[in-house]
């Protein structure tokens, strides 16, 4: 099986590559459209600022390629947010894959929100063998509102989407590559389902 990690110069891809290697998957870093199109699984990472990341995607025409992909695609953190319709970060239009918008946390929450939080209402194969209310590691200042594509959520003072799914597209706000054994299980589920 060929797994490609989209390399568009945004974020710490190494840690995802290492996490995949720990579960026996040797992912290739690439921004080559043909390689991405022909992969069995595509992971779309991202850390940093949304409008800059979107500019980088547009430069390499990945903004057109990604929504057309037919194989399972997993967006992580900013990757997931860019797959939504719009993000308030830099007032940026997203790829429109998930039917929701990304908003900024209000001032009574410390941002960036850093740390482990429980995810609930797990309703996707992505969470096979994962228990309700497990802790995952999050680092973010913006959040995706709850919508029909939500398959896991954070049930705090502001409930929001922890994971999204639409057809072959998956997105997770947390970092499975930094969330211990359970995070590795979620990556495994993405690779086998």
């Amino acid at each position: 099986m060929k797994t490609v990690l989209i390399d568009y110069g945004s974020g710490n891809i190494k840690s995802i590559q290492f996490a995949l290697a720990r579960i026996g998957c040797h992912a290739v870093l690439s921004n080559n459209p043909e390689m991405i199109k022909n992969a069995d699984r595509v992971i779309f990472p991202g850390v940093g600022e949304a409008s800059n990341a979107m500019l980088k995607l547009k430069k390499s025409k990945l903004d057109i390629l990604i929504p057309d992909l037919k194989q399972p695609v997993l967006g992580i953190c900013l990757g997931m947010q860019l797959m939504c319709e719009h993000t308030a970060e830099g007032d940026t239009d997203g790829l429109g894959i998930f039917q929701t918008n990304v908003l900024k946390f209000s001032n009574n929450i410390k941002v960036p929100q850093v740390g482990w939080n429980n995810i609930t209402k797990l309703s996707s194969q992505l969470f096979d063998n994962v228990e309700e209310s497990v802790y995952m590691y999050f680092v973010h200042s913006f959040y995706a509102t709850i919508c029909q594509d939500t398959v896991a959520l954070i049930d705090g003072t502001i409930p929001y989407s922890a994971a999204l799914k639409n057809n072959n597209f998956y997105g997770v706000q947390f970092h499975p590559e930094k969330s211990g054994k359970i995070g590795e299980q979620i990556l495994k589920n993405f690779l086998i389902n």
């Binding site: 710490n12 720990r22 590691y137 680092v139 995070g183």
Partner: peptide, 30 residues
Amino acid sequence: IAEQINIPFTVGGGISSVEDVDVLLKHGAD
């Protein structure tokens, strides 16, 4: 550490430039 540890980690000490940070992040520091 980045290869083997599945939780986040910070590296500090003697970092004084954008280049220093770039190198550490490329080596897998979170």
